[in-house]
Amino acid sequence: MELKVKQVNRLDGVREALYFPALYVGFRLTVKHFWRNLFGSRDVVTINYPEEKRHVSARWRGRHRLTRRENGFLSCVACYMCETVCPSKCIHIEAGEHPDLSVEKYPVVFNIDELRCVFCGLCVEACPKDAIRMDTGVISMAYTSRQTFDFTRDLLRDNYDPKAHSNPKYEDYDLPSPSNQQEALPNSQGVPAS
């Protein structure tokens, strides 16, 4: 069998050999960009990341949050659906008895190891109570120790005041961060106040 060889059609001739026409075209382009950006960075498309954040789609699967009922308690009923479906086995739930008998159960412990999570979103789909969502818009998590990625219930808890933000999905800068874990725990709203 004969090998098929693709002939590349190379440009040649005097025009190419002279280099100058090609140089001129290239220079026109680069100098144009240079001058446009020298005065006012008009073409620059860079997002200066930590200061400027990119718009995140509402469907982006970011860090989890646990939603709350209207009276402030967690919506989660500790049904273990999410823990069961999770492909990376990174959700750990321990159920406790809820004082409100119509609710029956609530998670005493609800940990997600965000380092093992593959952000597949199956937990969100599995939840019967819309208690877990991934719409915080937190797209990057970077900490200095592995333990800090093990988000506890109270860190995952949806903590923003809807009245203070026009669009809480994207402006949740006051979500508790692992550094103030100690302060976050005593004020837990996972169980109803007595």
Partner: peptide, 10 residues
């Protein structure tokens, strides 16, 4: 700096 301007960077 200049190469950044040429390539629309910062």
């Amino acid at each position: 700096k200049w190469s950044a301007m040429i390539q629309d960077r910062v």
